[in-house]
Design a protein around this nucleic acid. Sequence first.
DNA 1: CATATTATCTGACTTAAGTCAGGTAATTGC
DNA 2: GCAATTACCTGACTTAAGTCAGATAATATG
Lengths: 291, 291
Amino acid sequence: MTHDPISRVRRFNRAVTAEVGALDTSFLGRGRPLGAARVLNAIGQGQSEIAVIRDYLSLDSGLMSRLLRGLEDEGLIETVPDQQDARRRVARLTDTGRSEFQEYEALSNAQAQTFLARHGSPEDLLRAMDIVASSLRRDHIVLEEKDPRHEDALYCLGEYYGELARRFDNGFDVSLSRDPDAKDMIRQRGVFLVAMSDGLPVGCVGLKGSGGDIAEIKRLWVAPSARGLGLAKRLMTSAETIARDLTIKILRLDTNSALPEAKQLYRGTGWTEIDRFNDDPYPDAFFEKRL
Amino acid sequence: MTHDPISRVRRFNRAVTAEVGALDTSFLGRGRPLGAARVLNAIGQGQSEIAVIRDYLSLDSGLMSRLLRGLEDEGLIETVPDQQDARRRVARLTDTGRSEFQEYEALSNAQAQTFLARHGSPEDLLRAMDIVASSLRRDHIVLEEKDPRHEDALYCLGEYYGELARRFDNGFDVSLSRDPDAKDMIRQRGVFLVAMSDGLPVGCVGLKGSGGDIAEIKRLWVAPSARGLGLAKRLMTSAETIARDLTIKILRLDTNSALPEAKQLYRGTGWTEIDRFNDDPYPDAFFEKRL
DNA sequence: CATATTATCTGACTTAAGTCAGGTAATTGC
DNA sequence: GCAATTACCTGACTTAAGTCAGATAATATG
């Protein structure tokens, strides 16, 4: 059989190298080498600290310096010494630079749009692209503490509730569940973690404290595109570590048998099943972990 | 909402450019620039005609010549004039070259293997990669005439039967269906077309002739990863064109209501529903098209 | 058979990217 | 306050990739 998993991965690699070559050329389409375009793009995205950009694009400091000089000569950016530390420099777009950056944005967007529009069911294609991107960049998924009312947090919660509604036999209505106050999931009472994969939220977990020794884990969710990457475990471990920092002694959580993979995760990571500790209508399984 | 379709496509592009850069470096891992490695790889894959390789990798003739000279100096390949046309040259691997090529193969395979193994459900990841690869390379999908007993044809038929078994309420058993003799789907009686996407069969259709004016369309199938690319229509159009060449006057086909997208395709491309013309147990809809 | 065409090669270039060894000025640590 | 460190810059280099104008030899065309 020539259609084994490995040749399928290699077919993907070939497809991507062949097409992304053409994709990169769009940057050259505006008569600027890729390196300069990438720096301009980073600055346009709001990165102003040169050291950060250099690190992100993994450029040599000499090369970086020359690229900046080039963009300056073109009148696209200006660099000034940092207020706090005059050794550092910060870069920002000029008006010309801003409009040039917008051109790149428009080009990239149009390209993405065209690619999607050619497909018969763009949703399926997007789902597949999300899975591949999350997997390729798995080592770059970062957990960030966010306010539960932050856009990214709300996005996760929306997806989470939607999934519960699909999975539970009788659907799911947030108002029937004990929806914890946002302030219980903010330091020093608790915390809300969002897993970000290159700008896209792909998972979350809430640690809901009461100020006392006991806290609850709530709203553990991982995006379908990011499953299989060990993200749930990572979110739980982080939440536990923060709980310890907050001098919490006992963690509790409730869950539902319609989510078997969750129960399995808890059992395998030191949680023990306990008796019902609330009268919430949805959960039918309860766990505890002593820190 | 910052998580719109377009930013998701762009996130994919970023992921791919970031990681495939690292992927390309594996070629440099053997101390040879990418260009030379790509040429060696093409020759290893069995491409011997220099003009073909040059065209495939879209290299300038001067550059190609230099790369070949380099590989020759390394003792990895040898080039000799073509038998038929002494202006052309053909390249082949030496023994050293063959083992060097194997090293690249082993590296690529190991890399693919590692990538898959890190994922919790490799099958889902592969499915997603197939979808993306098919979509990226949609313009490079070629329809090839193959013997219905050829490995790639059998692969398609296997997938096709498997899908029927899943979709039909009572399953599907090939032996109960009129399985046309392979020779009825070979010229001059008929033809069997396989859609190939970079080595992977992603669709098929059979034109089953009888030597007379009437022929049947059978076994139209498109891989899940290649749906939404208009491939079914393309397969049908090709089959019809070939039918005309074979001086066939009337085309018939049977299908099943469990395959609604198929019926819709036929209705939209000049087929008219007719009465049952066979006693096959599976189909419940019958179509005809006069050429 | 003369001429045009084709496939490949060679030499002389350019551009992009990157490396490396210092150099300068600001900041930090003791 | 002085030495070490840090952030950025400059100049001198290398390598990879690619372009372009001929040169050469074989083949096709009238």
